[in-house]
Design a protein around this nucleic acid. Structure first.
Lengths: 320, 320
DNA sequence: TTGAAAGCGCTAACAC
DNA sequence: GTGTTAGCGCTTTCAA
């Protein structure tokens, strides 16, 4: 029995070339011997690795863990593996993502938030799908976005509809497309209502920094905002803590909104009004786009819808 | 210039065999050409892949995302890559982890909670490090544990010291060593104090299920427990919600404790008294043990210390 | 100090 | 319908 025959059978390329009887023999032998193909050899021969790199800013945020989960599922369905490159937070020289990924790669999916790693990724010359990033960016063969602008608009309209006129935006202190979009859509919507005013305050992406930013906002001279729009749920949790420390009740005295709908959003009291972003869908759509690309076709840019979840942290502003 | 010379230089095996001048020439050329060694070929030749599989129950829980982060850091320092196998939650046939990992593997690190995947892992014949699992388990060449028993004891002593005598345990409905240890240590400590009683209530690992379990506990006939010990912070967040729905104040009417010290623990109000488990340290120690194993040495079993963080969710029980 | 050559395990083209 | 063979890119042994 030759190697070639075995390869044909195990690669499901035998119909019309190998007899049924031989096929059975091969399969039985493979099973009995516990045969496992050597992936390194296969990769070497084929020049493809069936491995994809996913570049995310950090895994410890539930959001990107979910993105990974969605991406991994689709990859597995296509016989691909996913290697993660969590771009190092803060200081320290970013390791070369292509070196860190011990495997050779067939393609890359990258979040726009993993800014540090992007330069290297762009230079990689590999098929690239960008997540949640500027669709006009020429580097990516495809982009998968959430309709973040619509989400921000829905938040603003919800709040304005409740009667809020002084809104403060706790804006993520991260220079990334997704946060710029939030700020712009929010500003446009609020500006569209006479007498409504928006202020912004930058905040690092943690509960603690969210709390401090909210305290700065609430300590400002002049009339206090009646609603705090936060760039994500973590910030919103921090904002709630700040409000409570100052003796303000949520939502009676002040409304708070988040983004993402993390587990956190329903763990806090009151539950957060937030914009649900389906992180798993982002990961899955990103991987699907990359698979299309690897098949030599051109994937469509995807924009995934988002919904506003009205929960307990928003209400009409207090009467004067 | 031959392949061999280049290989020697790039593999840092040249001293005494290649002239300094040639070394420089090779390095310059490699840089100019942007040469990247083909890992598949190297793996094929060496029979080792410098890739490790990390088996975790789910990434979307912050805890295991942190374990990955710690493991990945140590792996990268040793020139290894990490492939994740998040064992499928709930139903569905578990894919073969060795198939899912597209690379061939040099070793495996597995959490005891990823029960489904374990059978396949054990059969792999690869060096295996188990995380947070029974040290008597013979399958693993090494175990890395947290001193969970000590954590549970500290929680119990803290509560007993505050004067609590009726304690309920919201026990994770997962059959895993780590949770059995918590239950046992808690029971032993409470039993050591005359007049103190412990009851247990199983709960799925989510805020919602934690809330329901706590509601069951608090609705039981007879005197209400004055403290709720929860197997993790997520459950504790649910328990807090249950208490509040019943009009109980935390910690005045009832104390609540968690485990893990997730971001959630300080996001809720009041902040949770909890046992800090350093998930990153677990991942890092696990990877270090595996590296030792791959060097042909025998790693020590590791037990990492834990600390009780006393925060706002515990206080003396209400006076009768 | 450098080069030539073998071979890791696989797949695909081609010969039988 | 099956077998033979070349060669993917690398490391290592051995010869020059």
């Amino acid at each position: 029995m030759s190697q070639a025959t075995v390869s044909l059978v195990l690669g499901e390329k035998w119909p019309g070339r190998v007899s049924e009887r031989t096929v059975e023999t091969v399969r039985a032998a493979a099973r009995d011997l516990g045969y496992r193909p050597n992936l390194a050899a296969r990769s070497l021969r084929l020049g493809r690795t069936r491995t994809v790199l996913l570049v995310v800013p950090a895994l410890t945020t539930e959001f990107f863990a979910r993105v990974y989960t969605g991406a991994e599922r689709v990859a597995a369905d296509n016989g691909f593996g996913v290697v993660l490159y969590p771009s190092p937070e803060g200081v320290g020289p970013a390791r070369d993502p292509f070196d860190s990924a011990r495997a050779s790669l067939d393609g890359v999916i990258a979040s726009s938030m993993a800014a540090d790693a992007l330069v290297a990724v762009r230079g990689g010359g590999l098929p690239l799908v960008m997540l949640d990033s500027d669709p006009d960016d020429a580097a990516a063969a495809a982009t998968v976005n959430l309709d973040i602008a619509d989400g921000a608009r829905q938040v603003a309209e919800h709040l304005l509809g409740l009667g809020h006129r002084r809104v403060a935006h706790l804006a993520a202190a991260v220079d990334s497309w997704t946060f710029r979009v939030r700020a712009r859509a929010l500003a446009e919507t609020v500006d569209g209502v006479p007498g409504a005013a928006l202020s912004a305050e930058p905040a690092g992406l943690s509960v603690e920094e969210g709390r401090r930013a909210a305290e700065r906002v609430l300590a400002r001279p002049g009339p206090r905002p009646t609603a705090l729009v936060c760039d994500d749920d973590i910030l919103a949790a921090g904002a709630c803590k700040a409000a409570r420390r100052l003796g303000l009740r949520i939502p009676d005295d002040i409304s708070v909104t988040g983004f993402d709908d993390l587990a956190l959003a329903t763990a806090v009291e009151p539950e957060l009004t937030t914009v649900r972003l389906s992180a798993e869908a982002v990961g899955a759509a990103g991987m699907r786009a990359l698979m299309t690309l690897l098949d030599g076709e051109t994937p469509q840019d995807t924009v995934l819808p988002v919904d506003l979840l009205r929960r307990g942290s928003t209400a009409p502003p207090p009467r004067l």
